[in-house]
Design a protein around this nucleic acid. Sequence first.
DNA 1: CATTCATTCAATGTATTGATTGATTGATAG
DNA 2: CTATCAATCAATCAATACATTGAATGAATG
Lengths: 225, 225
Amino acid sequence: MKNADVHHPIFDEIADLARTLGHAHRLVLLRHIADGELAVEQLTQLSGIALANTSQHLQHLKRAGLVQTRRDGKRVLYRLADGPIENVLTALRSLANHRREQIRELINDTMSRPDRLENISREELVRRMRDDEIVLLDVRPQEEYAAGHLPGAINIPVGELEERLAELPREKVIVAYCRGVQCVLSADALAILRARGWASRRFEGGFPEWLTPSLDVDGMDYESG
Amino acid sequence: MKNADVHHPIFDEIADLARTLGHAHRLVLLRHIADGELAVEQLTQLSGIALANTSQHLQHLKRAGLVQTRRDGKRVLYRLADGPIENVLTALRSLANHRREQIRELINDTMSRPDRLENISREELVRRMRDDEIVLLDVRPQEEYAAGHLPGAINIPVGELEERLAELPREKVIVAYCRGVQCVLSADALAILRARGWASRRFEGGFPEWLTPSLDVDGMDYESG
DNA sequence: CATTCATTCAATGTATTGATTGATTGATAG
DNA sequence: CTATCAATCAATCAATACATTGAATGAATG
């Protein structure tokens, strides 16, 4: 027996639908439209999306059968199509909230035991990097990063951190590091990150500790083999 | 008052989630995983998706928090994460079904009055093209199409129609045309399209009628202005 | 500790998607 | 008929997403 039923075109149709919902602008537009019929320009004002762009997203929604239109003089009014559209939006929203809460718990775990757990050991670092639970953040100046850094680390100097927070994934724990124990860059970074709600920790030893594996590790050979 | 609350990051998070569901492969994988823990290779066999590709999609799902993993010997087992995931899938599926039914009604409308409505008038054609309800299909050979065709028409010669059906949108009525009343190409096309479940009609006059506006039109001037 | 198996990573090419700009269409008012 | 306003189209560019390939990792087995 082949697995023919699995390639059923319904999966493509559902995927198309989901992709249509896969853009914040379209979700915003849908939400407004759900409150009642609106013209394109009203929607641009409510949403702050540029006119032509709004029009394109609206037509995407129309193609997908999620909204319908009618003309009223010069204006084109958009309304929600019938069908269980709001169910889908509600379900998505509640799933997103569920995830948010889980992340919040993670943050609280970390923050309720502030200093004991602020530092992360090398073993935990390696393990959780492998399991993709954390993101390594190198907060040293760009030149130092270029000269060498921990594998997988992304580089955002502390000075630029505030404005580049968008580059960090919301659902992971951020582990910041800098030049080592005596360096305060990563501590500053933690302050910023925690103020903005990220779960964050510190790899205290920084780049130097990474280069000297024998300090607190038992039998792993990195460069000696 | 600004519309700041509208740019709430929750919209981005929901959009990310929706995009994750926006690919047929991931939906297929999710469906299988929902039946119980499965290893990557089992999933490749059930789904027919290439190994590395399966792995990538699975990791996409994991990043999005929809599945979780554990190791069992050499294998990595994927299971559904908790949270209202199945609600979302159910809601999406029922919305997709709703749309399917609407399309089916449309088809039945067309097919139950076969000959009366098989032909589409020029006015109806123009109006429904404008409202984006139909897709114009030119089934003549590629050279004739290149020499001139109706605005917006796509060209698929009848001979290639079977294998290129995927290029046609499922949710619109297909209007086929060819060289004119005495030409049977578009009639053949209709047979193929209807057998595959498309709502389809025929612009009987074909390309020639389009070029001679005065035949059955009242006051529109096309090339006489 | 070399081999094998399951999975993941990394790199590449290609296709899609989205934002932006300026031109165009459709409907109304003067 | 022309001017004006609302909306859409068309074209372009940058960014992203996917599939595919071959290499690399991690765990078990002999």
